[in-house]
Amino acid sequence: MSEKKKKVGVFTFTCDEGCSIYMIEIFNKKLIEWLEKMDLEYFLSMKDRRDATEFDIAIVEGAITTERDLHEIKKVREMSKILIGMGNCTITGMPTCQRNNFTPEQTEAIKDDLEKFDFLEKCLPVKEVVHMDDEVPGCPMDEKKFIEVLEKYL
């Protein structure tokens, strides 16, 4: 019986991309095996093509800090059956959302940029914005747990 390969997309929101870089390190040992079961349909670090509109699994990293982030995460959620959050940024928002804890002087100092680039009033973890089916905590995310979670859905 031939099972259909899962369509996977990797989406980056506001962060340092540490989790996707870490994922690529995990790929060193796992990619060949995983490619038997999945097609990477969207991953701008590895390909330019971006016409896919449906995903079995969306792997996301980062936090939601601008209107554009907010719009895009909702779109990704709509297009995906399963959404997995990589790293603390998606779960607690930290460290990316550190501006939420700034003193009034610090907030004042970044005010112009916040306005100019359509930042949200508060930076939010992905989890607070859309439903996440699964999550891998850590900064960067935990390697073993990621393998376990992804393989559950492949």
Binding site: T14, P95, Q98, R99, F102, Q106, A109, I110, D113
Partner: peptide, 10 residues
Amino acid sequence: MENQRFYTQA
């Protein structure tokens, strides 16, 4: 277009 995360401030 990378959104600032304000580390120099943080």
